[in-house]
Amino acid sequence: MKILAVDDDPIILELLSHFIEGMTDHTLVTAECAADALQVIKDNARAPFDSFLLDIQMPVTDGIELASQIRSMKQYIEAPILMLTAMSEKSYIDAAFSAGATDYVTKPFEMTELKARLSLVERAVEGLATRTSKIFAAKAVTHHNGKPERAVQLHEPMAIHDVNNLIEFMALENYVQQLSRSDLFGSICFAFNIRDVEHFHGSMSNFEFCSMLSDVGEIISDTLDGCQFLMSYAGGGTFVCITESGWRPDPRLLANDINISLAKTELFDNRGEHINPRICAGKAVRLMWKTNSSVMDALSEAHVSAEEATANYQKVQNDFWNVGRTA
């Protein structure tokens, strides 16, 4: 991997150079401030970086703002961004994830921890490359026989950009795994599932399907606006949300608000036909008293619960027409 590290402390940059160049096969380029980093990114446009290590607290432009600027560049829309933070203060970390960070390491870091985090980043970069090659392959097929593209897999998580507090699924997993016991205490996760998502996926082009997910994500994000939360698209038409302590959401009421907003928002496909995505909410799952692995189970539980809510809704709709009928 080619990595750009940005930190205003020269000792950190020396440590990173020493470790990364001495112990791994990665190439490290360094910058001491956000302005230098943006220039370095520009200078390396022909051989772009695979990932970034950014200090959160830097003078003038901090790492959170820099992460946001990097994310706005087309070629780095999905590149892993690992934040370096001397603070365990959750508000900084939340802001970093909201700005597009994939993961974080707390300073002073230990080499074993940094190595483990870099391995995850490397796997993400490899996954990105595989996915990109699949998309190119799918596009080639599309051009060849004119059939709709199928590169976006229904049950795969997908990055959706430019929606407030909506982050990549891998970033959400990293975030949850690193929450401290006290942070977990009041945190709650829940999920929303798009009804008939299989139909939308089957009948729409990649672009239409992604646009619909983005629109639904935006409406969910707008509905939760004003509360501290992070959310992610987990695949299968499901958006998983994590809220901060102090707020106990009622997912069913939120689902009503979201569906009202969806009804008010006129959404169309590429043929100009009106589409009516609606969602179902699963149950709220508390994260307190959970260990690392069971926190991940809680995410799955919320996800499954939302899918079950959709299945139940559809069953009720079908059974309604069967009332009074006999075999």
Binding site: D8, I11, I12, L15, A86, K107, P108
Partner: peptide, 24 residues
């Protein structure tokens, strides 16, 4: 505070844990 923050961020990684803790 900025100077202490930088010291606290690296001292521990270099084995100077006590100094890093006091800086933090």
């Amino acid at each position: 505070r900025r100077i202490l923050h930088q010291i606290a961020g690296t001292a521990g990684s270099l084995g100077f844990d006590d100094l890093g803790t006091i800086a933090r």
